[in-house]
Design a protein around this nucleic acid. Structure first.
Length: 481
RNA sequence: GCCCCCAUCGUCUAGAGGCCUAGGACAACACCCUUUCACGGUGUAGACAGCGAUUCGAAUUCGCUUGGGGGUACCA
């Protein structure tokens, strides 16, 4: 074992918002670095200028930060191996490409897209796997000069020779490839920018990356990349390929299945801690069976070689449950900070901060998403619409109960929860003993009158929070129904 | 088509030859608790894809089949 410092990276391409799958890859890299006492770097892979945007890049930054997956080195924080954006590194790739040409590992290719398309077509017609024809492999200097004189800009291809390539994947174990099946692939585009496979290798090499942990959609890129490392005379990092996250129909997780971007989940009211915890469980299992754990605890228990090598399906049920668990346990002040933006359609100024926290406190229990609060807290901010409970309120029982409640409420000490709670208990007992009303029936009448609902938070707490004039007002509205 | 990866309850998974009449979590269902919804508690139902081989013994090893996923670009 070498004693070199572990360095991992997460290398998203800013062609979309941060995907939940990328977030999981980032998490596993983060966990591995943490566990190994290593460094975790963020690199933006924007070699495809057309598909990259500043907006997506910002979304990636924001989402990663929201999740707490902060990087040790990256485009914004810098580091000793920058720049960390491939578009700012365009001057360094051609040097290495030229080096490969000089050493005979690569060559210039003047084929046009049309030429290449034709080759693809022919291969398809003959039902034979496509491989580049190597038409440009043996061009003479004179021929190349002539082509260049015509203004044709060459791409650069890596010359792939036959070889059986074996590497030991951190999560999958031994993987074998026959490189004779791989055609000579491009490493530099004719426009002078590097292709993905080349840029990754050059950057990972220059940034001293020791472990490449990524999705298994990159497995087939790995042999190409190893070939490049070897040609460059660089040390090949260790690779670990994670199973993919699939939608419930086993297809790729996409927008039509619901949220896919971390920022979408946050908008719906998922807590980042819950999201992270849930996604960690896709492929990783705690050794003590306790599934709810913070990142530090997960990192302490993290072993990359014990990750599951199969794909996993993203189901919302467990995420929702977990989110509910986090909401229930979260510090109330912090939770209120997160919840308030979801309540911006209401005039929250009606209440003090303390009262708002109290409202959140008593309504948090049954919810799974922060946005559920919109409905569940509505009656604190708006006079209810009684359509749903009209029938209930018009029953003899309810009229009877509310008649007494209207009188009793005058004797409640509305500042004192205990007093309200006890008086309500007596109230129930009274109707049970005198009229045989079930406790829940008695409470339904009160609840319906005050909230327009048959379910909701603790009644005593609601009475304590609602302004007295609003209670009277609602009682009067109901009476007139 | 060709190459590669994967395969335990509906889902996430535990399981690294006998500890497995396969364990946990979510979801489902039932009951209990209860001022409602919920939370919590208790319990029920639910899986080793199929076939061969190795072995005294296989969910665990090997092979084939099937199924799913990925790749096959001058996209990343």
């Amino acid at each position: 074992m070498s004693d070199e410092k572990v360095r991992v990276r997460i290398a998203p391409s800013p062609s979309g918002n941060l995907h939940i799958g990328t977030a999981r890859t980032a998490l596993f890299n983060f966990l591995f670095a943490k566990k190994m006492g290593g460094e975790y770097v963020l690199r933006i892979e924007d070699t495809d200028l057309d598909r990259s945007s500043e907006e997506y890049k910002q979304n990636i930054f924001d989402s990663l930060k929201a999740l707490g997956l902060n990087w040790d080195e990256g485009p914004d924080v810098g580091g000793n191996y920058g720049p960390y954006k491939q578009s700012e590194r365009f001057d360094i790739y051609p040097k290495y490409a030229q080096m490969l040409i000089d050493k005979g590992y690569a060559y210039e290719c003047f084929c046009s897209n049309e030429d290449l398309d034709k080759e693809h077509e022919i291969a398809k017609e003959n039902k034979v796997p496509y491989k580049y024809s190597r038409k440009c492999l043996n061009l003479t200097e004179a021929e190349k000069a002539e082509l260049k004189a015509k203004g044709i800009k060459p791409s650069i291809r890596f010359k792939v020779d036959y070889k059986e390539l074996i590497f030991n994947d951190l999560v999958k174990g031994e993987l074998k490839f026959d490189t004779s099946l791989i055609g000579d692939f491009a490493i530099m585009k004719s426009n002078g920018t590097p292709t993905y496979n080349f840029a990754v290798v050059v950057d990972d090499m220059l940034m001293n990356i020791t472990h490449v942990i990524r999705g298994e959609d990159h497995i087939s890129n790995t042999p190409k990349q190893i070939l490049i490392y070897e040609a460059l005379g660089a040390k090949v990092p260790k690779f670990g390929h994670l199973g993919m996250i699939l939608a419930p129909d086993r297809s790729k997780l996409s927008k039509r299945h619901g949220a896919t971007a971390v920022s979408d989940f946050i908008k719906e009211g998922y807590l980042t801690d819950a999201l992270l915890n849930f996604v960690a469980l896709l492929g990783w299992a705690p050794s003590d069976g306790v599934e709810i754990k913070d990142v530090d605890a997960i990192a302490a228990d993290f072993r990359i070689n014990e990750l599951s090598s199969s794909n996993s399906i993203f189901e919302y049920e467990k995420l929702n449950w977990m989110n509910g668990q986090y909401i229930k346990k979260m510090d109330i002040s912090a939770l209120t900070d997160l919840a308030l933006p979801f309540l911006n359609m209401y005039d929250t100024n009606k209440y003090t901060r303390k009262q708002l926290e109290h409202i959140i406190e008593i309504t948090r229990e049954p919810i799974t998403l922060l946005k559920d609060l919109v409905f569940d807290t509505q009656y604190f901010f708006e006079t209810p619409n009684y359509d749903e409970v009209k029938e209930l309120l018009n029953s003899e029982l309810s009229k009877d109960v509310l008649e007494k409640f209207r009188q009793d409420i005058e004797n409640y000490n509305l500042d004192d929860y205990e007093d309200i709670h006890n008086k309500l208990a007596d109230f129930r007992t009274y109707f049970k003993e005198q009229k045989g009303y079930k406790p829940k029936e008695t409470m339904w009448a009160v609840r319906a009158a005050l909230t327009g609902r048959t379910k909701g938070a603790d009644m005593a707490a609601i009475i304590q929070l609602l302004p007295k004039e609003e209670i009277i007002n609602r009682l009067n509205i109901v009476k007139a129904l």
